[in-house]
Amino acid sequence: MALTSPPQTRSPFSVWQALVQRPELLTLTLVLLLALVIGLINPVFFTPQSLFDLLRASTVTGIFALGVLLVLAAGGIDVSFTAIAAFCLYTTTLLVLNVAPDAPFALPLLISIGFGLLLGLLNGLIVHRFRAPSLIVTIGTQYMIRGFLLAFIGTKHIMNIPEGMDRFGRWSLFQFTTAEGARASLPVAFLLLVAVALLTWWILSRTLLGRAIYAVGGSVPIAERLGIPVRSVYLFVFGYAGLLAGLGGLVHASLNQLANPFDLVGTELDVIAAVVLGGARVTGGTGTVIGTLLGVVLVVMINNSLILIGVPSTWQKVVIGAIILLASGVFSRRKLA
């Protein structure tokens, strides 16, 4: 009888059942499968250097993705974070160059995340205040922020980034020389991703705020009914996404040794795809930190390994699209199951 019977088990396979409960396992499976395929085609992939490259390339995307995760979990979507990141990295670089070019990395870091936080809060405020769809709002702010940056701040590439950023970007965590005599290294910046991931995990699973974010993502009217301050949740998730955009942007410029105001905008869908492939739903209310990180690894691996397996550049976009479609197909099967 329904009173005491367990929730209906809908599939006989316990493996499948596990995938239903833990979407990140599915992402992990996809990551491992893809790694295996790449490695079989080109064994060069199975070197520590590849791992370093992968982690390094995941750093900035990962920082962005964790911000997007929070917004998605709360039932919103943010496409403005790349514009925020470009604004923060460029404005901060200019400001620091003009005011205190020798300041330690902490100064540009604080300025950049400060700008990011403010712009993110603006998103949150508009979304809540006007009850507007966050997609439309953030498309608007993306254009506005980027337009403002290019029109009033500058369009010139800055090669000589401030000393602090330059040093941070070159600072290696590990470094070794490969058999061919080439150096491989993992930048310290990767630790920032680790720190942000831990912080995000803690917020999502160890605080009332984290649960409130998922609740709002589940249903705004119900959340209001149960006394959850929806406005605070919106301000927080968009502010946090903005803050991480500021951080990611600055790390991007530091690693890149270049402040380019045209960078990043246009890559937001890659990041969103990573979060969704990590198990978060575009409709909101779900998603985990570990899944998101795996999704980022998956997308970065797809993007960066096509050369290794010899896909001609004209076909790369087709292949990336096909793999994402395939992965999302597996995901929707999971949801139907």
């Binding site: 605080t207 649960r211 409130a212 998922y214 589940g218 249903s219 149960l226 006394g227």
Partner: peptide
Amino acid sequence: FPNLSVAENVALSAQLVQQGGRL
């Protein structure tokens, strides 16, 4: 909340109320 677990649905608001709605 369809996306939250049974335990969270049952007991989350209790803690929220205990904290006076502070997140």
